[in-house]
Structure formats: structure tokens, C-alpha cells
Design a protein around this nucleic acid. Sequence first.
DNA 1: CTGAAAGCGCTAACAA
DNA 2: TTGTTAGCGCTTTCAG
Lengths: 337, 337
Amino acid sequence: MQRTLKPPPPRGATLSDVAAAAGVSTMTASRVMNGRGGASEETKARVLAAATTLSYRPNSFARGLKGDRSFTVGIVVPDIGNPFFPEIIKGAELAARARGFTLLTCNVVEDPEREAEVLATLLDRRVDGVIVCSARLEDKRLQEAIEPHRAAVLINRPMSRRIAGTIEIDFRTGLAAATRLLIDRGRRRFAYIGGLATSHSGRMRRAGIIDALTEHGLELALEEATTPNLEGGVDAARRLLERGTGIDTVICYNDLVAIGAMSVIHERGFVIPRDIAVLGCDDILPARLVNPPLSTMHVAKQDLGDAAMRMLIDRIEGRNLQQSITIEPELIERGTT
Amino acid sequence: MQRTLKPPPPRGATLSDVAAAAGVSTMTASRVMNGRGGASEETKARVLAAATTLSYRPNSFARGLKGDRSFTVGIVVPDIGNPFFPEIIKGAELAARARGFTLLTCNVVEDPEREAEVLATLLDRRVDGVIVCSARLEDKRLQEAIEPHRAAVLINRPMSRRIAGTIEIDFRTGLAAATRLLIDRGRRRFAYIGGLATSHSGRMRRAGIIDALTEHGLELALEEATTPNLEGGVDAARRLLERGTGIDTVICYNDLVAIGAMSVIHERGFVIPRDIAVLGCDDILPARLVNPPLSTMHVAKQDLGDAAMRMLIDRIEGRNLQQSITIEPELIERGTT
DNA sequence: CTGAAAGCGCTAACAA
DNA sequence: TTGTTAGCGCTTTCAG
């Protein structure tokens, strides 16, 4: 079908149009437009006036082609449908814009292949750097996908400092503390519904729970892995309850999983938290809305996005000050524990 | 501070590198890479081999500078924190990628100024087209911001066909039907919590309610306007209940507002739906999770994003077949009505 | 079937 | 303070 392309709207004024209108050379116009010094007040005024009249807008392609910066950065998230990530994106975008960068958001739908693909596309688009959230790719391939980028920041995944800055949410410590608290309250038979096997931060969460359990001579009673969304939580909880060995606590990879699990637990006639306590991670909006409201590990998501973006831009600009940041999640007790 | 820029990673191979390696001219290499005819099988093979060896990736800036397409499209949303929009973005991104386009997502945080600004940035980035969701800009400025783009699709906002394709969710009809149903069930004193005054689709929702009310000789008992998020819902519901004239139904601009309102209604000791029925719009995830689960007007969000993107690409490519689509929302009764 | 030349819009480097 | 030259990587003529 592919008919003729719609003709582009009358191409906007170029820098030489502006220069001509102001009666100066392109170079002078360029200097004025970029606020570089070296132009008499008078010339400057003339150029600026011409630019306004012609409503001149610089062509970012030409700029990108020439200079070696695009003032574009990418962010890759596993699932934009999980409210956790839009909050991070929001923080990152604000920080990016404040520094003159445009943000390219890519959703990977939990598919490692897509992740590699997207990182390559971003490279083609000549982004100045990338933020990757919860990368699912295995170490070697992730490194290969990240390395060609000028700068990178990984959220929730460790990586050699040389290749990427990292921001980790210390769920291990956080969940260990939370687990201890639950043990003190008399909980004994813990189950963990983890995320995908490929998730580094899922393993950290598990480790935190085990840490606390071990201190008290306890073991993890049951365990399931699942895709980190609502449906995954439902499935995993079903399997869990079928294997049912009188668990009294379910700790979940994230809030979505926890909320899915809660619905199954209710369905099976258990009372939360009396029979079974439930704990999530992330503190997304729905967590406070379910019934009873979900206890969870709160993470400052917008701050996280903001910090990641600042770190990324620092790295792009050769300031590798902060190589790694750790954020402590905070236990918020609501009605499920 | 602004230290020296981190040196860009060794620039990837260019088309002439590939050409050189294959022993042909740049032009031939270009033709092969773009699958344009006119190259002997043998030459073709050699070029392709060279490209692979050098892991050649075309420079999208050079392409964009020359040709007049960037294969990038933008989508503008008022608030990425509202789960309604990530779903639309998801559908749109999938459709875009399937056709070789990259999607640039911009969050406007409900600020008309930002909306204009973002549309200009997108123009600078030479996107081939834009999708704008729930534009808040007033008609004239919106038109000015949209018109310079080669193609545009507006979601939930009417516009001259020449300037943009439109996708409307017919909340007017949908809410009229829902309102009629509620009237049949004996509800009489309706309140409406609308969105911002600048929201076209907010006015349409209101009109639908009024349509049904008028048919039955009823009037809207109370009305409030607010920012379309959870906090907005809380505020508006407070004001509503203070003016309290025994309303028995609250219809809300969207689910977030409805959920905010529900919390206030509970707080004040009313029982939902016995004392007051609540109806939302959009059917976002949290709607099914609150207690009681929220009745709402369901919208197929991913399909909407998909349809918008197809329409946009059609327009970019000069196929203005579908100029306007109307989507019917569907009443989902859960526990609040 | 293949190549040479020109130029998209911009800026870095060097003159003047 | 200002201008000239050259070239970023690609594709669109137009010739061979």
C-alpha cells in the first residue's frame, strides 16, 4: 500500500536563514544562539531578533551528527504497566529535562531478548547514556549490551564500576529486618514468592529473609517463583496453597505479586493477617488501597529516578563521583502484618 | 564544574567503512543495506558480510538529517503516574515498534505550559508525528502547537480533521446509559466530580450525566472540579460532603478521583453503595482492588494506544483513511453501585 | 548493476 | 569580533 509520504511541513528556518536575515555569517549566528561569547551586543540582538521572527529552531539531527552528543538519554524498564516504574520514569524525566536532556522510555515487557534489542536501538539513536531498571539479561550479554554506550546506570543490578554506575535498593537488609520483626511477633512458617530466576534483586530479597530466619534457627517453609505481576501472584499463591503446609506468612517479590496472592488467600477462606500475614515490596499506589491495606517495603521511587538520572548525567559529563548508591527501603506496616 | 566530556566510545563503523571492506562504493553499500534493488547477489553478500563483521549500525542522525523521516514518534500524556496512561503507552509502543518506529514518551504533569513546550521539543527532535492524550491546552494554542507537526492524533479531544486524527472515548453516551441505570435503581441525588475545567472529555462526561438526568426531570445536585488524581478526589469529596445535601450517587471524572472520594466517604461514616453509590471512569488496575471494588466505565486502553499509533502512522505515510475513531466505554458493575 | 558528486544543518578549527 | 573552510554519515541525483 505504502502510498507516497505526506510532504513534510514547510521546513523550518535554518541557521543560515537566520544569519542571512541578520546579515551575518552562519558561524556568528551559531555562536549567538549557543550563548558562546564573542559577539557584539548589537550583532547579538540582531541575530536573536531574526531567530525570533523566523521562529528558528535548531535541528537536533544536524547537531547530533556533528557534535558527539545528542542530549538524549534512554531508560529501559521491564514493565511500564507496573506502577513502580512510571514513578521512577517521572523522577528521571524531571531530572533530565532540568538539565536539557530528552528522555527516551523503552518498555521491555519482561523479555530479555527485547532488552538487548532495545539497548541496541538506543545505541542507534545515539543516546548519550542509558538507565536500565532491573535488567533480566544474563551478566555477559548485559555487559555487551551496556558497554558500547557512553554511560550507563543500572538500577537493582550490580556491575563493574567501570561499565556502569549502580543504584541498589537494599532489600536484603530491609527484608531481614522486617522478617525479624515478624518472627518476634510469633510468625514461624514463612513462604517467599520470588520473581523471575533471572532477577538479581529477587535473589537479594530471598537472601534477606533467609538471613533473619537462620538467625532464629528457622527455615523457609515454601517457595515459588513467578512473573512479577498480578497474575503471577495469583498463580504462585495457588500453587503455594496447594502445597499448603500451614504457612503463616507470605513475603512477596513486589506489591503486585502480593496483591495477587492476597486475592487467592481470601478466596481460600484464610483471614489476613490473622491466619496468614502478607508483605510486599515497592509501595505502589494500589498497596494502600487493597483490603486490608498491604504492609510493604517503601521505596522513594521518584527520588530513585532522580538520583539515577543525575548519576547518569554525571557519568556522561565525565564526573564519575558517585559510582554507586544504596537506598534503604523502609517497612511500612499497614493491615497485612 | 562541567568537566571534560567523557570521550565517546570508539565510533562504530560507518557505511564507508563497510563499503571499503567490501570493496564497493558507499552508494552500493547503502543500497544493499536498505534492501533497495539493484545489486548483484554476489556484491550484496559481500556487503552484508562486511556489515556483520564490522557490526555496522546506521547512524540515525545522518539519516534523519538527509531524508525527511526520523522514524520516531512522540506521545504526550498528562500524568504518567495515572495507570491509565502507561497502558495506552504500552499499546502505542508495541504498535510503533512493529512498524519500525521508536516512541518518545513525554509526561506533562497536568501543566498546559509544559504541553506546549514538549510539543516544541518534539518538533526539534524531528519526530514524524505525535499522539497527544487529553490535551489541556486551549484550542488556539493547541492548534498552533500541533500544526507544525507532519502528523498528529489526538486522544479525547476534537480537532479539525486536516490537522489531526482523533480518537474519542464516548463517555457521553456511556455515562448517560450508566446514569439511566442508576436512576432506574432509585438513585436520585447525583453529584459529579469533574476534572480540570480545561478538559474536553470532562465536559463530555458531565453532558452524558445531564442528558440522562434531564430525561427523568432530574438535576445534578452538586458538582466539584479537581485535578484528576487521588488527592484531587479526596479534596473534592471533602468539599462535596461539606456542602452535603444528601446526595446518593457520586460520579467521578476518573478512577483515581473516585478512589480518593471513596476514602473520604468511608471516613465520614457513609456506607458504599448503600448510602452513596460511586462510579469511576477508565477501569485502571486499582479499581478492582479497592473495597468495595469500584464500578467503572471500562476502556480498552492498550487497544486505544494501538489504534492511535496505527492512525498516526497512516497519516504520516499519507494514508488518511481513518480520520476519527470513537470507542465505546463499557459499564463494569462491581461493588460501588 | 555501480559509482561520483553534492548537500542535509550544524559546529570546530582556523584565519582575518 | 567575525568569517571561511571542512566535514559529521548518509542518501539523492545523475552518469557511467
